[in-house]
């Protein structure tokens, strides 16, 4: 019985922790962007502006939640929830520390890929249901971008799977005791990170919502907490991809023993979150066809080659 209670406690902690981190990222991102652009960022509400998050939350909760008359009501309401649900479900398989994992699935990576592929629906459905040209174009771009980059994401992870011999995340972490996967799987890491950027449609690859071309793309018509869900969902996606990069390529909770494992995990995860923000601060948005040809002509062959070489070496060593 007590085991069940501990499990429920872990679930609640992971859920609340991730949503809190995602909300806090709004502040972190604005501050760090400001640092890299030689500004201050939000520093008025509370010490160093840390209560900016509360102010934003209060604002977004009390905004009018307007559903325009021309939209497809049901789909319009369902769309923003999908990204929250799929991203939060994906956290179920992330091992934060030995024993702290919601579901130790033996198809962990596949579960993550499945959830991220379902996440594409949020963009497509939001774009379609908004009944707006800009949203539709955003939805089309988002669909094409996400299903393309899912392919490379899956292929880049297969090298890790071959090395660990398992889809289980905990096994993958334990396998990295000698050497982190980033060394033998450097190409896989780079491809996974780029694909992760595209999957979360973060700033260098934010062409589904490109403000300067499509107003706000698929969420042009959204307001209030429905928009907030897209917003928090995006930050959850960043957290998820950072956590997955940590687990799959940087040894998860492994680290020198002067710090507890969960701290090592969080340190690595936040480092990747900051890389996300840094990329946003520095890189311009590629053109849509550039993104596509870059993916299919460079990343796909590279990922296949990486898979082939990894498999060959593993077979040779046996």
């Amino acid at each position: 019985m007590s085991e069940t209670w501990i499990h429920i406690l872990i679930i609640v902690c992971v859920l609340l922790g991730m949503v809190t981190i995602a909300a806090g990222l709004i502040y972190v991102e604005r501050r760090m962007l400001a640092v890299w652009q030689e500004r201050y960022g939000p520093n008025r509400v509370g010490p160093f502006g840390i209560f900016q998050v509360m102010a934003d939350m209060v604002k977004i909760f009390f905004k009018e939640d307007w559903i325009p008359g021309f939209v497809d009501r049901k789909v319009f309401i369902v769309a923003p929830t999908i990204i929250m649900i799929t991203t939060l479900l994906s956290f179920a398989i992330v091992p934060f520390a030995p024993g702290i994992v919601v579901a130790n699935l033996n198809v962990g990576i596949l579960f993550f890929l499945a959830m991220s592929s379902l996440g594409a629906y949020t963009i497509v459905l939001a774009g379609w249901a908004s009944n707006n040209k800009y949203s539709l174009i955003g939805g089309l771009r988002g669909a094409a971008q996400m299903i393309s980059y899912e392919v490379f994401m899956g292929l880049s992870l297969m090298g890790v799977v071959i090395l660990a011999g398992s889809f289980n995340m905990t096994d993958i972490v334990m396998e990295q005791k000698g050497m982190w996967n980033v060394v033998p799987q450097f190409i896989g890491f780079v491809i996974f990170f780029i694909a992760g950027l595209a999957e979360t449609h973060r700033l260098p690859f934010d062409i589904p919502e490109a403000e300067s071309e499509l107003i706000a793309g698929f969420h042009s018509e959204y307001s209030g907490m429905k928009f907030g869900m897209f917003f928090v969902g995006e930050y959850l996606g960043i957290t998820l991809v950072s956590a997955m990069t940590t687990v799959l390529f940087f040894g998860g909770w492994l680290g020198p023993s002067f710090l507890p494992p969960i701290v090592w995990f969080l340190i690595k995860m936040f480092a990747f979150i900051l890389v996300f923000v840094l990329l946003r601060a520095s890189l311009p948005r590629p053109r849509y066809d550039q993104l596509m040809s870059w993916g299919w002509k460079i990343l796909l062959p590279l990922a296949l080659l990486n898979l082939l070489v990894t498999g060959a070496i593993v077979l040779y060593n046996q």
Partner: peptide, 22 residues
Amino acid sequence: SSIRTVWLVFLHMFKKRVTIEY
């Protein structure tokens, strides 16, 4: 050049901020 851009932007962390806190 993209990687160089990222590095140069990272170096901006150590520069003086231009904002005047009005």
